[in-house]
Amino acid sequence: MRQPVEQLMKAYQSHLFVAAFNVCKDAEDAKDVVQDTFIQYHTSTKDFTDEQHIRAWLFRVALNRAKDINRSFWRKHKVSLEDYTETLPFTKPADHDLFDAVMQLPEKYHIVIHLFYYEDYRIHEIADILKSAKAT
């Protein structure tokens, strides 16, 4: 099955942005990731079993694209993470602290944490998205 890209953009745009930001730590790069992900969906002829299959595929593509961008030297960190974080309107100081703490974690940990805590994925689903073993 396929869903119109417009529907998917409406449903997952902000989720993919946050996931990509966890990797890129740069808002503009994360926006590029979101666009690239939907472009890849739109130009792909891949058939999906259901919406959850599409959702997992979108996250996999976005996270891989974010890692690619992270490895590209000239795109990296146009705005410092500290400066950007100061613009976020956290409702409580503890939220700011939590955000800072998560951003300090090694990438391999906070992607897993993010998919578990924010996207409510289970461990085996996260392993499938990241193409890694459950034990790791």
Binding site: Q13, S14, H15, F17, V18, F21, A27, A30, K31, V34, T87, L88, P89, F90, T91, K92, A94, D95, L98, F99, V102, I113, H114, Y117, Y118
Partner: peptide, 15 residues
């Protein structure tokens, strides 16, 4: 708590 924190990030960027 985690969702509240990252909802702030999600809602901060409206393309």
């Amino acid at each position: 708590k985690y969702k509240r924190t990252f909802d702030t990030l999600a809602s901060s960027e409206r393309f």
